[in-house]
Every structure is written in C-alpha cells, then in structure tokens.
Write a protein that binds this DNA or RNA. Structure first.
Lengths: 182, 182
DNA sequence: CTATTTTATCGACATTACGTCAATAAAACA
DNA sequence: TGTTTTATTGACGTAATGTCGATAAAATAG
C-alpha cells in the first residue's frame, strides 16, 4: 500500500490558485517572459511571500505546470497506440487532436526550458511504441528516433504557434506526404 | 549613388566591442537569459550608460547580432543553389556545413526571439529556390513550404543543441532517408 | 592648428523585481 | 481544545533597469 500523506488543503489551494493565475495571465499577456511573482500573486489573491512557500521561482512553478500537462497528455496518447485499428493516418490525427486541446498553453509554454524536452520525449516514446508494435515489419534502414522526433517537434511547434488555423487532418496529411513510409 | 554618412569611428568601435562582449559572454555562460547590461559593458570595458547610446536593450543588441549572422549565412548559402552540380545530397551537406560553422552561437541564440524566424525564413527561401530551379520536374502533390521548413528547423535546432557530435553528412543522410523525394 | 561637434565617462537617481525574514493571524488537525 | 501548519503583513538588502547632467576626450571641419 502507498501511504499518501494528505496535504493541508490550504497548501493545495494556494498551489492551485497560483497555477490558475499563471494560466489566466498567459491568456492575457501571451508571453512567458513578462510574468513576475508580483503579478502572479496579485492575480491569485495571495501575498507575494506565499509564493515562495510553494515554489522556488517562476520557472519552478512553470516546470510543475508543464509536468502536469504532459502527465494528462501521456494518459490520452497511450491508449491510441494500443488501439486495434492501426491506420497510421487516423492514429496521427488522434494524436494531433490531443495536442490541439492544449494549443493555447503550448503556444506560450513552448518558450519555457523543459517544455520542448517533455514534448520531444513524448514524441519519441510514441514513435518507439509504434515501431515496437510493428515488430519485424520494418524496413532495414531506419531513421534515428532523434531525427524523426526533432522533425515532428518542429512541425508541431510551428503548428501551435503559427499555423493553428490548420486542422489536425491537414497536418497529418502533410506529414504523410513528407515522410517516407516506415 | 548612395551617400554613406560615415559613422564616427568611436561609435563603430563601441558597437563592435559590445557585440564581441556578447560573444565572449555567451561562450562562457552558455545562456542568453543570464546576460545583463552591466556584464556586457564590463566585458567591453565601456560604461554602462554607453550601452544605451547604441542599443535600446539587450534584445535590441541580440537582434542586430542575429541579423548580421544571417546576412553572412545567406551570402554563403546563395551560391550553393546556383551551383551547376545539382546533387541534392551534396547541396544539403554544403548547406549544413555553413550552419555548422555557426553552431556555437546558434545553440545559444536559438532561445532568442527572432532567431528561429530568421532561420526559418532562410530555410524556406532555400527550399523555394530549389523548387524553382527544378521547374516542371516536380510531383503534383507538394508538401507546404511551411511544413518542410518547420521540420528542417526542428532537425537543425536538435542538431546544434543536442546532436552536434553528428556530422553534416550523417544529418543529410538521415534527412534523405526520412523525406520522400520531391 | 584651432574651434566645433560628437561621443564616452562618471556619478547619481528613481524604479522594479527579487529573495528573505520575523511577528502575527488564521486555518487545519489530532 | 490545544497544537501544528500555513498565510498575512511589512520590512529589509540586493540587483538590474533606464535616465540624467556635468565633464572629459576624441573626431571632424574650417
């Protein structure tokens, strides 16, 4: 059994309102670099000193937010890979749909150190899982996971930042056109 | 005729040493965000107030640096496209070699707003020029320049940041494996 | 060479954000 | 109910910012 030391509800609430404040400010400002502890605690209606009871600095808070978002995202992505229908295009569209749900946060959080790594890791994990599922049905000359991951990362960052008017289907179609079949 | 108002040599020197100071500091710190006006002017052996005679703020200075680097880079890339030998692999290797020359600055400047746009523009211009050169010899279904540009941008950023141990030839080879032929 | 203009230097100022602290108040828990 | 934990408040020193005026030094024009 795991013993969960239940956290003080005030502590949980403070952390929650601080995160909500960041989301709220990012929705207004559209710029991570303009965040200050003062703005965040004002928006959260907490004292500035309270911030430091829960987070080291703004980057620490952003790290936690990014970590939670990718936790959710991973949970959504995982069942896609185990899905019986293995149509690559449909899998890709479903994957992109998950990202689309977070596009607003992604477009601003992408500037935060650690975000790209998290997304890159998720992408590489996903690609590897797909390769594992295909087993021996793979061509001999494989492109490095790093390269495919970096390429997809670039396309997704472009999508959420500058091309959000395009649908998941369009992007998936373009990726299909661009890459050789594995 | 263009009349070039010749700038005061002291002004030119100040701007030069400020830029050199940035390069010097980036080579040590490896982090754009840690730069301060004080550090830059200390390193340049200028007064802090002098900085503000030439640049609005640190981002303004970085913008000028990025602009100059991409000016040089464009000059190097252009003749590659007009080269008689049109082997795609060799063209790509030559292009990547140009980038490799700047890898240290790229790895840190990549975090600066405006850098990615400059690199993306160069990539897209280059891809378009290659398509123009091929003329009617292109397949009907073309991938959007934005998508290819974003993909290449992702790969190059990964390369200069995390994969600089790989050669231009390796990366060009991987890109050849990854993409369908145009 | 001299006079004028331009630039750099120096010290100072107000402002903002940071990170920390101690004393007190309020909430949660046992 | 009493103890522990957390939040509030106000304050402190630090660092970096952007600006200013007076002075010194360099460059340019006559």
């Amino acid at each position: 059994m795991f013993i969960m030391k239940k956290e003080d509800p005030r502590s949980l609430r403070s952390k929650r309102v601080l995160k909500e404040a960041v989301f709220s400010l990012l929705a207004e400002n559209q710029d991570v670099t303009q965040l200050t502890v003062q703005k965040i605690t004002n928006c959260a209606e907490l004292n500035r000193a309270t911030f430091y009871l829960h987070y080291e600095d703004i980057n620490d808070l952003l790290r936690h937010i990014v970590h939670e978002i990718f936790g959710e995202l991973s949970m959504k992505v995982e069942p896609l890979l185990k899905s019986p229908r293995s149509d690559e295009y449909e899998q890709l569209v479903a994957f992109l749909d998950c990202i689309y749900d977070y596009r607003k946060f992604f477009a601003v959080l992408v500037e935060h150190p650690g975000f790209k790594m998290s997304l890159s890791n998720l992408l590489k994990k996903t690609i590897q899982a797909r390769r594992d599922a295909k087993g021996a049905d793979l061509p001999p000359k494989l492109v490095s996971i790093d390269i495919i991951g970096a390429s997809l990362l670039g396309i997704i960052i472009w999508w959420v930042k500058d091309g959000i008017q395009f649908s998941s289907e369009y992007v998936a179609g373009q990726i299909g056109l661009l890459y050789k079949k594995e």
